[in-house]
């Protein structure tokens, strides 16, 4: 008899406590967002160390040449081999003539950026990278340079 009463008491208590918790949450600010329909969601930018799309940076000097010397450090550091570079010229003249990064293969590990001795390659805060075909996901030299317009710093947590 005592056990029966206790069961009813505990069951009733569980229901009441559950409702109190739910009721309290009515008054808490919501943390979800209607991305991509809301403005806050569309304008959200990740922090400085975020690992998103790629960009090639230009040198700070007047001539505005690419910093990249096609030394292949990034391609060697890549665990999946998604970076393909062809360089031209000798010594100081050396520069890339083709630079492909396959975003479909990339694992976003950031090791290419860390391997670069010239701080020429960076990951950006671009996070809408999905495409409708595999060919769309391959970034070429022009796209990478365009993504680097206006940037001077490589991605780094500060």
């Amino acid at each position: 008899m005592w056990g029966y009463v206790r069961d009813i008491w505990q069951g009733a208590k569980s229901i009441v406590v559950g409702h109190i918790v739910t009721f309290r949450n009515f008054w808490r600010p919501k943390i979800t967002d209607r991305y991509p329909h809301s403005d806050a969601g569309k304008n959200w930018r990740p922090g400085p160390g975020y690992r998103g799309g790629f960009a090639l940076l230009k040198s700070d000097e007047e001539d505005r040449e690419l910093r990249c010397t096609a030394c292949m450090s990034c391609a060697r550091a890549c665990p999946v081999g998604c970076i393909h570079i062809e360089g031209e010229g000798k010594g100081k003249e050396r520069h890339p003539v083709s630079f492909y990064i396959d975003m479909g293969l990339c694992v976003y590990c950031h090791q290419c950026v860390e391997a670069c001795p010239k701080d020429a390659l960076t990951m950006t805060d671009e996070y809408e990278i999905s495409g409708t075909s595999r060919a769309v996901l391959v970034r070429n030299l022009e796209e990478l340079v365009a993504a680097g317009e206006g940037r001077t710093e490589v991605s780094r947590v500060v």
Partner: peptide, 30 residues
């Protein structure tokens, strides 16, 4: 989600971090 924000601020990734390095870390704490 609060923890994910902490991980993102420190490592730059939310689920796949690649933060530890042999003998060290990718970067110091932000």
């Amino acid at each position: 989600e609060l923890l994910m924000d902490i991980f993102e601020a420190v490592t730059g990734g939310r689920l796949l971090y690649n933060y530890l390095r042999i003998g060290g870390l990718r970067n110091d704490l932000p």
